[in-house]
Amino acid sequence: MCAVLAFERAPGLIMDLPQFLENFLQALTAGLLTGAIYGLVCVGLSLIFGVMRVINFAHGDFMMLGMYVAFYAFGMLAAVPLFGEWLSPYLAALFAGPVIFVAGMLVHKLLVSRVTGMRASALASEGHYAQLILTLGIALVLQNGALYLFGSAPVSIQTPLASTAWLVGPLHGERVEIFVNQGQSIAALIALAVVLVFVAVMNRTRLGKALRAAADNPVAAVYMGIDVARAHRLAFGLGVAITAIGGGLLASSISFQPYVGLEYVIVMYAGVVLGGLGSVPGAFLGGLTIGLVQQLSTLFLPNQLQNAAIFVMFLVIVLLRPQGLFGTAARRT
């Protein structure tokens, strides 16, 4: 699926230097653009882990829901003359945020809160596994429920921008030219903006303080009058909403089906673990790195192995440096 992002390029290892340079720069560009969106997606996952210490297996499936919300919202918005085909993909992606926020809050309140939070600590190790397994169950229901609701045929958001590119170059003696996809560039900028807004919310507002307090020490936060259960619910809702926006942004550059979340859940965890579980800036950088690795791997590996490369990299990171490459937030639970 991700292969759609990479431009057609001649396979084969024998190529001259300018050709390689062009391919390399092209993959680098694609990697940065995809990576920014992966970064956004990772930030959502990281928020949930940072505040609740919950590993959310269903996270990829909330992203998938975000993609479908954006897909259907685009269908409606594109009909409105004011938005047209140019603006509506991005509005649709942002619209997925609040919708999935509500869905996330509900899922947390009805299901996740029963095995996490303060009560879970009383369950000792049992609670620890209960939430892993519960979110696995939620993931299965979402994936297969979506199969029923949306069908198994791959879809994508078709926009004129997605097939338009800026041409950079010619560089290096007239032989190197790079295409920068316009749709992806705008999506990457929006992803970056959402991350910056989120960081500002976490650092500046009362809500952000409450979330950070609940993350640091839930017991002390309760004594300070913070409603930790509500903080967890908000964190879960916000986390899946942020990831849903990322999914909405991706939806115009890849085609997707109900099982798409499964591929991305590993991509996301790779990014989050790379950045150090629980660290927001780390998660963004981690996601960016994964995007780069994925695109650059196409220079050496067949397209089918792109995802295998990510899984292998994920395993290597987890096994060698579970505290993350960027060294922050090394707390392990």
Partner: peptide, 27 residues
């Protein structure tokens, strides 16, 4: 290698093995 990990990390790492194998066998 994987028993160096505990809890969440172990579960996550175990998830990656079959998914990586799935792509390899398709390839």
């Amino acid at each position: 290698p994987t028993f160096r990990l505990r809890g969440h990390y172990f579960a996550l790492a175990m998830l990656a093995y079959p998914l990586a194998l799935m792509y390899v066998f398709e390839w």
